[in-house]
Amino acid sequence: MAEVKNVEEVKEPLFGKVEKKLMTDPLNDNNPITVQVLGICSALAVTSLVYPSVVMSIAVIFVCGFSSLFTSLLRNAIPKAVRMIVQLVIIATLVTLVEMALKYFNYPVYKQLSVYIGLIITNCIVMGRLEAFAMANKPWRSFVDGIGNGVGYGAILIAVGVVREIFGKGTLFAGSPIEMKLIGANAGKVEYMINTAAESGLGSWFGWYANNNLMVLPAAAMFIIGIMIWIQRSYNTKLVDVS
């Protein structure tokens, strides 16, 4: 809190040290998923492919940033007793906008994400940032904090998505315009970069390769995040849980 007071004296740059810290902190030391354990709820189910995870991340970044901004603008007008409801209404409105936009621009992905877009409302990370940060800070700073947390969240989602899609399906960005088929047996018109059914060349070295069906199951996302937490905490020992 003292920090905030000091900054007000000097003319602050639009994107100074504080903003940079707010933006980068959620990427590692204060990651919403692996450290704060918020927001795992809704979105992991979409990580079996990368493309929906990217769309989901963008949606969360948008909602997280703008709900922080609006809550922060209204923070002095919101009575303490009903603040939860006001926050929920702000979030729900933004999510409704996202849902409509997605339905209009990209219907197949909208179908694929089904209820999970609506579940951004109850994504604890959005609500958590509003309660912990936006209710006590200025609009611009809250906006940066919201975006930062959204990005930290999206980074994990996409990382999980990449691992699951490459090992589970042998493709990357399936369903999007830049679809890449990495490894697998050619069948009909479907051609992979590494054709495991080939007689000669690189592909013939991978004749033993088969997609790991475990990665398609929801359980795989759990294992991958567990292992990510393991790796992160091995390097960053101050995060280790002592209990």
Binding site: L217, A219, A220, M222, W230, I231
Partner: peptide
């Protein structure tokens, strides 16, 4: 349990195993 895996990390892996059991 390895220190870095204690608590949260282990809970995730256990949940994954339970998911497979429920399958």
């Amino acid at each position: 349990v390895p220190p870095a895996l204690r608590g949260l990390g282990m809970a995730f892996i256990l949940t994954g195993l339970m998911g497979i059991a429920f399958m």
